[in-house]
């Protein structure tokens, strides 16, 4: 999280850019290079496209800086621009993709398996599991994926996530919950079969 000082610096840098000292924009965005790229990569899962989207997002932020209002956090505003760029790109790639979901609709049921309870310590196995998680994340409905990425990867709090997406905090919590359970449901069976703990943890009723 940013300190007060950081926020003051940012306001100063934004004012400089708007006053015509346009090079200050480079310094303004430097701290966010990683999170904008990470957001784009989590959505698109393709490095070249993520880099392209990140560049477009920063350029768009520059061109629209005059519309930025200081009551919002600059980072939230910037991430929202990156998210919109990534969404637009995804829609071009997958025109059938939809983000209309009903937050009130039913509940998500987790996978009821008892044999994946510990995190593997071997880095190779962790890397394999991470790639399974990435693939599972890709299969989530867009609206859930966005919330999961903002909360778990970008580490935005509930309020910032709600502002970025233009939804309520209650929706953020609901979508995050469903995203987590959907991932559990999809991943637990795959991971159980790779788990070295499997043999010791068999229960006769499964």
């Amino acid at each position: 999280m940013q300190s007060q000082d950081n926020e003051r610096d940012e306001a100063g840098l934004i004012a400089e850019v708007l006053a015509g000292k346009t090079d200050a924009f480079h310094d303004l965005v430097r701290p966010y290079e990683r999170s904008v790229y990470l957001m784009a990569l989590s959505m698109l899962r393709n490095e070249a496209e993520a880099e392209d989207v990140a560049q477009e997002a920063f350029i768009k932020a520059y061109r629209n800086l005059g519309r930025f209002r200081s009551e919002a956090r600059f980072s939230t505003w910037l991430i929202a621009i990156a998210l919109n760029e990534a969404r637009a790109r995804l829609r071009r790639k997958e025109p059938a993709l939809t983000d209309s979901i009903d937050d009130q609709d039913g509940s998500v049921v987790p996978a009821q398996l008892t044999d994946w309870r510990e995190i593997p310590s071997e880095s190779l196995e962790r890397a394999e599991i991470r790639s399974l998680i990435r693939r599972a994340l890709e299969s989530l409905p867009l609206a859930y994926r966005e919330v999961f990425v903002l909360r778990e990867l970008e580490q935005r709090n509930v309020k910032e996530t709600a502002e970025t997406l233009g939804i309520t905090s209650a929706s953020v919590k609901m979508r995050l919950h469903r995203a987590r359970i959907m991932l559990q449901k999809q991943l637990a069976p795959q991971l159980a079969s790779t788990s070295p703990l499997k043999r010791g943890r068999r229960f006769p009723w499964f």
Partner: peptide
Amino acid sequence: AILDSTRNILI
């Protein structure tokens, strides 16, 4: 177990 596996995914 569901709680543990969900937490593992987040970690």
